[in-house]
């Protein structure tokens, strides 16, 4: 049953215009962040250039929002009703959605990494410097971008399944990412390094010392473990609430 649901979910993702807009937004965020830093910041040293290629992961949080929109959107658009009529086993429904969005996240992460490298190499060359970041580091950053973006999308699905109210869920995530997460990092860096933004920086493995309010950053492996734990936690919560919850009558 799971393979069928994965095919259906993939078809849903492809057939929904919002998905393509969000993918475009993720690439735009990567391109603009990298481009602005290229134009405004230093590019000569290896550390400068590691910071630039580190922007490969910034699209991850956009995919987190896509996961939230997709899972909570099932309730907003009432598509949860035919989905459950076809598959009364709701655990499998949530799992299929998470798998498809994680796969889409991985693809977006890989493309973002390639885009970021391309912009960095071209920009550094145009500014008259040599690109000196070793290939092993580029591979590590690309891997980090793939894992972070994939986990972000799956985490978003879990969050959306728990929240159910699409507008409230998206607003909550935006407020947390733009205000609460940086504030926690600024006030309590030891705690803030476990927040999603600091974890994103850890995944990009820039080695940079100036990350704004995110002064403490976990090692890459630790960030991967923590983010995987978050994703698993919200997937379990999303699945559990989906199974327990009755589907109310549409009040629209």
């Amino acid at each position: 049953m799971l393979p069928r649901l994965i095919r259906a979910e993939a078809s849903k993702l492809r057939g929904t215009p919002t998905s393509w807009w969000v993918f475009g937004a993720a690439f735009a965020v990567v391109a603009v962040s990298t481009g602005l830093s290229l134009v405004l910041g230093p590019v000569r040293t290896a550390e400068d250039q590691r910071s630039l290629v580190g922007f490969a992961s910034v699209g991850g949080l956009v995919l987190l929002l896509l996961g939230v929109v997709a899972a909570a959107g099932e309730y907003r658009h009432r598509t949860i009703v035919p989905a459950i009529l076809i598959t009364p086993r709701r655990t499998t429904l949530v799992a299929a959605q998470a798998i498809v969005y994680a796969a889409a996240g991985a693809a977006v992460g890989l493309t973002s990494a390639a885009l970021c490298m391309l912009i960095t190499v071209v920009g550094v060359t145009l500014r008259g410097a040599h690109f000196v970041v070793p290939v092993e580091h580029i591979a590590l950053v690309a891997l980090g971008a793939v894992i972070y973006t994939a986990l972000s999308a799956a985490l978003g699905v879990g969050l959306g399944a728990v929240a159910r109210n699409q507008v409230a869920a998206v607003a909550g995530v935006l407020v947390f990412l733009s205000l609460i997460d940086p504030a926690i990092s600024a006030l309590a860096p030891a705690l803030g390094r476990f927040g999603p933004s600091a974890l994103g920086i850890a995944f990009s493995d820039t080695g940079a010392t100036n990350n704004g309010p995110f002064s403490q950053i976990l090692p890459l492996w630790a960030a991967a473990v923590v983010y995987l734990a978050y994703t698993a936690l919200f997937m379990v919560a999303g699945t559990s609430t989906s199974v327990r919850r009755e589907i109310p009558t549409n009040t629209n």
């Binding site: 057939g15 929904t16 919002t18 959107g73 009432r78 598509t79 009703v81």
Partner: peptide, 16 residues
């Protein structure tokens, strides 16, 4: 109305 407004009828039924 149990449909995503951005999908076509064909796409909706294909998913199901």
């Amino acid at each position: 109305s149990t449909f995503h407004p951005g999908r076509t009828a064909h796409a909706h039924l294909t998913v199901l």
